[in-house]
Design a protein around this nucleic acid. Sequence first.
RNA 1: GGAGAGAUGGCUGAGUGGCCUAAAGCGCAGGUUUGCUAAACCUGUGAAGGAGCAAUCCUUCCGAGGGUUCGAAUCCCUCUCUCUCCGCCA
Length: 433
Amino acid sequence: MLDIKLVREQPDFVRQRLATRGAGDEKQIDELLAHDERRRKLLVETETLKAERNKVSKEIGVLMGQKKIEEADARKKQTREIGDKISTLDKEVAEVEKVRDEFLLRLPNLPHASVALGRSAADNPVIRIGGEKKQFAFAPKSHIALCESLKLVDFERGAKLSGSGFLLYTNWGARLERALIQFLLDLHITEHGYTEVSPPFIIGRDCMVGVGQFPKFEDQAYAVREGNDSDTLGKLYLLPTAEAPVANIHREEILPEAQLPVRYVAYSPCFRAEAGAAGVGTRGMIRVHQFDKVELIKIVKPEHGYDELEKLVANAEKVLQLLGLHYKVINLCTGDMGFASAKTYDIEVWAPGQGQYLEVSSCSNCEDFQARRMNLKFKSKESEIKFPHILNGSGTALARLFVALIETHQQADGSVAIPAVLQPYLKIERITA
RNA sequence: GGAGAGAUGGCUGAGUGGCCUAAAGCGCAGGUUUGCUAAACCUGUGAAGGAGCAAUCCUUCCGAGGGUUCGAAUCCCUCUCUCUCCGCCA
């Protein structure tokens, strides 16, 4: 959430930055400021009355002690009237504050100055290219064909169990998926200095609000109901990404500066309703309702936010380098960035069977946008209380990594070669039919 | 699911209607003393919001939300969470 003081003091700057996203959010600022001004005006009124009431109440206490009952009673009458006014004003303050906060919760983050201006994915600049497109002496198959011939994923039975968009990994497919998870966790723990955490997969509403998923994107989540009790709906959700619980680990805390930077890595399945996306690439493993992901989260001092973002991207790229995959790193332009992010790099991996790049990682610095929402702060050596930058990045998303891996390393005979770094986990050099 | 106990500052913990402006201790920061360290002593030590050019002042916060009262950490109601025991259970 944006700092209301910044909006108040530099409304033109805020409007200008919001406008670069191209979603019209800047039009909300005037109304937001009107609510904010009204709130402060009411606050002054009610606080003045409260000061008066506190003063008189104290005097009543003294008079009672001196047994001057009549004088005390006279003041009580006076104070009772003040009390009525206060409760009316307090209600008004609470109302206008709620409206103001609703505006703040629905406004996206301001893009960082270094982010390219643009309207859509077509305007995203390519930052780096990793590896080269593999050349095949034969026509590379799609992962769907490979999964069927090598019996890695049973698409029909996955759909039978849970509907379309759910996968049943079988035999070497299941083992490859598990090996990838283990490999990714080990890499980030031992090579990149992250601490592993394993969060709940069903998470409270506050986690969703904290990272900016809610209230704006509530329709994309799976809500959980306890038994038959409909009253429990709206409390718990299947996590759309481990970012949601892990970034919230220190919600409502003030961390000592010495504890920063915090670096967590977590595996979790991710559940996405993908409402409105039906029919778009629904075949295969590229857009599914449940996929595995290893997520990286950092909580850092603001002055380190952008250095840490570069390192985060490098950590995710390392995965693709070690697996021998071709990829490109792009910088999302202002019009294509996520709600909470100030700057985002996406990593897209080449899937030769698809003839296209697939997004397998999105690394963002959300600056203090999420920290404000979840009230996470740190205390500096000078005893200043500040909001840290919170960063998140996929390291990486699995179903698409699985696709790129088997499509890239498929052989002319229909088998798939296992990259050296995965062989210790799988104990085989290739998957054959 | 049943029964009971509890939730107070960074931590321990006192506080049953009015100097609570939350005791005391620990911790932490600064200072004095000291050859260094330690110890002792002194001082200070929460958060949020708001008014003001500023010094400074005001309001709110004792798990959350309501209520009673001139006045609530304290009394009443609801909820959440934690702990103990019982039942069920991977």
